[in-house]
Nucleic acid binder design. Sequence first.
DNA 1: AATAATAAATGTAAAAAGTACATTTATTAT
DNA 2: ATAATAAATGTACTTTTTACATTTATTATT
Lengths: 228, 228
Amino acid sequence: MDIYNEKDKFYVAVDCIIFGFDNQKLKLLVFDRRIDPFKDSLSLIGSFVKIGESVSDAAIRILKDFTGLENVYMKELKTYGSVDRDPGYRCISVAQYALIRIDNAIKKIVEEKGARWYEIDNIPNLILDHNQMSIDALKRIEEVARYKPIGFELLPKKFTIPKLQTLYEAIYRRKFDTRNFRKKILSFDVIIKLDEKDRTTSKKGAYLYKFDYKRYRELQESGYNFEI
Amino acid sequence: MDIYNEKDKFYVAVDCIIFGFDNQKLKLLVFDRRIDPFKDSLSLIGSFVKIGESVSDAAIRILKDFTGLENVYMKELKTYGSVDRDPGYRCISVAQYALIRIDNAIKKIVEEKGARWYEIDNIPNLILDHNQMSIDALKRIEEVARYKPIGFELLPKKFTIPKLQTLYEAIYRRKFDTRNFRKKILSFDVIIKLDEKDRTTSKKGAYLYKFDYKRYRELQESGYNFEI
DNA sequence: AATAATAAATGTAAAAAGTACATTTATTAT
DNA sequence: ATAATAAATGTACTTTTTACATTTATTATT
């Protein structure tokens, strides 16, 4: 008996669960499919992995093809491997979740590609197991956000503390006290105050900060816990 | 252009990284391969997923075939999908880590199957990327142990607090204060004191406890954090 | 019967972290 | 000059974490 059996070969897909933060809301990027199968249905973005390509390279390629973005925060969520998940072909999917900064450039690209942002409390019906993937990814983000400062991936490079707070409030679905939140975030010592204010939401203006990746890596390596 | 291309089909494997705890040490289960490819080398256990089988069922099947065990704590680690990971065929592996209780029954089965436990600080050379899988799994266990009481999966159903402490000391590679450790564990309110003592390690004997799975699930659902 | 040996079990005070809560500040528009 | 708005700030109280040493139950030895 040979362990290799041509019958036991699978299509391997990568699907990307892409989150963004805009207008105080956490949102999921959903695509209108323009090709078969499932033409005109809504789905996450995805594609088959090519035989000469690694799974992670496929994920990078997919994200680039559909959004034009590179160097994005993207992590493997899990593999979806049930027998009947795709009625067409036997296919497993290695789902990846990504966090991106929504800006005007991405808004334009997204529109051209027939994509739309949906608030996470209001996700429409998606093909196959893509709704389950979205739910699982959201749960994962909540978990990861407990001990890694992933929030910064979703905000512009320069952000204010009140904006950061609304993001965390969107992820956790609860309110924080402004004094305590500010104290906690500053105690991590991973954001740098800039000599610049954002005056779009108040007359007084709020100081802009940037994330200190170098300091973050140092702290993380020494086992620091960034629990909010 | 059709997105389905027979050339882009993969073998999908599952490999299991199995940990146990014995004689105060955290150990990895390693197998002497009796079949090609890589006959007589050391490896984790694994097999190809069959076309009519889900990935998670394959993991359960593999664990049962090699160890005789069912109902084991097993979770997906991640997918290993680089192009050159297996020089024979293009094959991705969905690695799973498992935590098992080492008892005499399992010791016997393990011996029959040509398997051996290695202390985690002393893992031999394994085939392919199996060493990397072991390293990644160990890291994951450390992370998960921070907020989920997975330690109980590795101990006998009845265990003493000092034994639980040595397990956590093995996972974290550091010592805990006995008074503080006991206080912390008991504060979780997920272990039940039995009217029975283990006298194998002391004259006084240490009270045996069992894990309260029901209470644990309740607490977990309410968002409780079991951080040690 | 007394003593030595062994690991298990326990309490407390000090320090640190988390929580709850209200006012002042900087600025623009009226 | 005043009103309006969101940003920024401090403190007292509670809870959790940490550091640390002695007593207890039992068996083996004398």
